[in-house]
Amino acid sequence: MSADKTQPLWGMVIDLDRCTGCQACVVACKQENNVPFSSREEAAYGREISWIRVMAVTEGEFPKVKIRYMPLLCQQCDAPPCTRVCPTRATYKNPQGIVGQIYPRCIGCRYCANACPYQVKYFNWYNWSHFRWPAEMRESLNPDVSLRPKGVIEKCTFCHHRLQHAREQAAIEGRPVESTDFVPACVSSCPARAMVFGDLRDPESTVHKLAASPRAFRMLEDLGTEPKVVYLKEGEWNATTGG
């Protein structure tokens, strides 16, 4: 856990029982964070950028088949493997526990992308922002998020720009930042209300309570990465009680 106990520990809970795999979070994230879109060829190369994507794993054989949907974003590890291998300290964990990426420092070596067990760090293969977006579409770029040049790694920041805005707002009001002050774009959009965001350290917060659920698990937590994204596994219908 982060050393500075006075800061909120931002975390997310994703209830897989509610999640329908619709990918509203995926599109909301791309629109909010000026993530470029791919082409058919680029997507086929695996070069599409998607800070949050929905994994859909098909399990079983016909007729007993199940798809498990799982939104996968940076797990904002408290012990992130990616920051340790960065030769230029372009990627680092900030005092709020968010794993950041300083684009001008990044030399595009992709060590961090390879070190990440969740495969959620993305390399910019193309000069998207200069050539890809038609002039009309550039109108919808978000001024709060910088455009990434070709050759750097980019990743989910828990919509850090929204946190900055929340902190400015709290400072104006002369109070500390609270658990409910901001949510990332993915959480805000989620039509199934499957995603919850807040201060994991605050015992009154919804995320704190949900993270203690018996359904809660963290992805690949045995690696010691200490993820701050918590998943709740799907519920099951009880055939004897009918509930």
């Binding site: 000026n34 595009g108 770029l141 978000n142 910088s146 455009l147 040049p149 050759g151 750097v152």
Partner: peptide, 8 residues
């Protein structure tokens, strides 16, 4: 290319 910075 990464040298060219763009602002919105």
């Amino acid at each position: 290319a990464s040298e060219q910075e763009e602002r919105v």
